[in-house]
Design a protein around this nucleic acid. Structure first.
Lengths: 103, 103
DNA sequence: TCGATGCGTCGGGAAAGATTGACGCGTCGG
DNA sequence: CCGACGCGTCAATCTTTCCCGACGCATCGA
């Protein structure tokens, strides 16, 4: 059903597809032009993104336009947030200070 | 050398390992206790995290303690940021307003 | 109506990932 | 000094992912 969002983002092709969709909906062939891949491969990647809820397809004529559906990315953001203080220097200093205060 | 960070996060076991390391450094056996997996499997997952720079190992006696090294997660955060306005309603409205203001 | 176009899907093969049992190495306690 | 402990690594196996060529379906232009 809805595949793992993290798994969907694991592939660089799929990440670039999402980046390409930020500017607006695009057709499959248009998206496939971004890569040196065969069209079936891109189509499969789009299917993975779709099963992760990251993309919505709108058939228009004989083209099929894909729309960015960024809502599931919030899950990644939520997972990432608790780690933020560990890579941000200033917040890290603050948190270490707090760790000293509360033993 | 440094494996893809997104690829490292694709596996739920590895994500839970990083979560478990937020509280502080832990030994391999301790971490393996979090799962119903064999110790070698967990050890390999830790190797993947290490090759992604997400973890640092500190040999202490016959134990080996793993420390969280969250810096590479900033790459994920950076990638995620341009999408934020697409899933956050309020920020989306704001950014669309800004887009109108600055042509 | 007919040929061309744009797509998704299926089958197969190659590559990568995940898990296990067995083994070897260094470390600690007695 | 020795047996037990905690680990990492290796070979082998199984699953998943990735990619392609071929095919079929629907749509558009003439």
């Amino acid at each position: 059903m809805s595949t793992d969002v993290f798994g969907a983002l694991a592939n660089p092709v799929r990440r670039r597809l999402l980046e390409g969709l930020r500017a607006g909906p695009r057709s499959t062939g248009d998206l496939a032009g971004m890569f040196e891949l065969g069209r079936p491969a891109v189509s499969e990647h789009l299917a993975v993104l779709r099963s992760a809820g990251l993309v919505r397809e709108e058939p228009r004529g004989r083209h099929r336009f894909y729309h960015l559906e960024a809502a599931p990315l919030a899950e990644v953001d939520d997972w990432l947030h608790p780690f933020e203080r560990y890579w941000n220097q200033r917040l890290r200093a603050l948190s270490e200070l707090l760790d000293e205060e509360t033993p």
